[in-house]
């Protein structure tokens, strides 16, 4: 991620890969996001992190919010980017687009302000395509049911007591800015910024604006 390179000019950046992504195996006992949360609790202890900014994107934002809701003592700040994880609406509301039940074109349309920035399987070689397919499997494993959220999380987010920034792409239609506002309202120490001309991945579509918001908050 280019923005991570920018951050690395000032910070030590730890960019872990969730098991199952980028060609890594899914551990035999893994069933859902709980397994990922506890893996990261182990990792954070192992690295003995202190005074660290915790940041997550989309599903990773959900993960970061869960970790911070358990305990914030190792972290100084929290950044959630177009995060999933909560269910603000009722049973009939589709709060989070069902990305597994829409066509690839529709998926691109709702995820990107500029669809030419979307990864395109037609340009991938066999190995890249297999990783793309494996990533979807892991993504499904962690998010399938309850879909992309933990019904309990909204009752736990009040425990987050560190400064928190929510960064949202204005054109995100996977989780709209109004979803981000609902998330923000559950964390009292938070504020939210919306980046124009960006969808679900503002760090990719508007890296300059993104890095500026991030650094301003981090200092």
């Amino acid at each position: 991620m280019p923005f991570a390179d920018r951050l690395a000019e000032r910070y030590e950046v730890i960019q872990p890969v969730h098991p199952g992504f980028a060609g890594t195996p899914i551990p035999e006992h893994f069933d859902n996001i709980q397994d990922l949360i506890f893996l990261y609790l182990d990792l954070i202890d192992e690295l003995n992190l202190e005074n660290t900014i915790l940041a997550g994107f989309s599903m990773g934002g959900w993960l970061a919010a869960e970790i911070a809701a358990i305990n914030t003592k190792r972290f100084s700040k929290l950044v959630l980017v177009d995060s999933v994880g909560i269910k603000p609406g009722g049973p009939f509301d589709r709060d989070i687009a069902d990305v597994f039940a829409i066509s690839p074109n529709e998926h691109t349309r709702i995820s990107w302000h500029d669809s030419s920035k979307a990864p395109d399987p037609r340009n991938m070689n066999d190995e890249e395509l297999q990783i793309f397919a494996s990533d979807r499997i892991a993504h499904g494993l962690y998010t399938w049911e309850p879909y992309m959220h933990n019904p309990k999380l909204q009752y736990r987010l009040h425990r987050i007591d560190i400064p928190t920034l929510l960064i949202w792409g204005e054109g995100d239609q996977v989780v709209k800015p109004s979803y981000g506002e609902a998330f923000r309202d559950l964390i009292s120490s938070s504020r939210m910024v919306v980046i124009p001309d960006a969808g679900h991945s503002p760090h990719v579509e508007q890296p300059e604006a993104f890095i500026n918001h991030f650094l301003e908050f981090a200092f």
Binding site: F100, F132, A133, I137
Partner: peptide
């Protein structure tokens, strides 16, 4: 059958899913 229903994540092994995407 639309591709999203023919190739839901986790149904096919990665190599088959990749073939279907391609």
């Amino acid at each position: 059958v639309a591709p999203q229903f023919n190739n839901p994540p986790g149904y096919h092994p990665p190599e088959v899913a990749a073939n279907l995407i391609r």
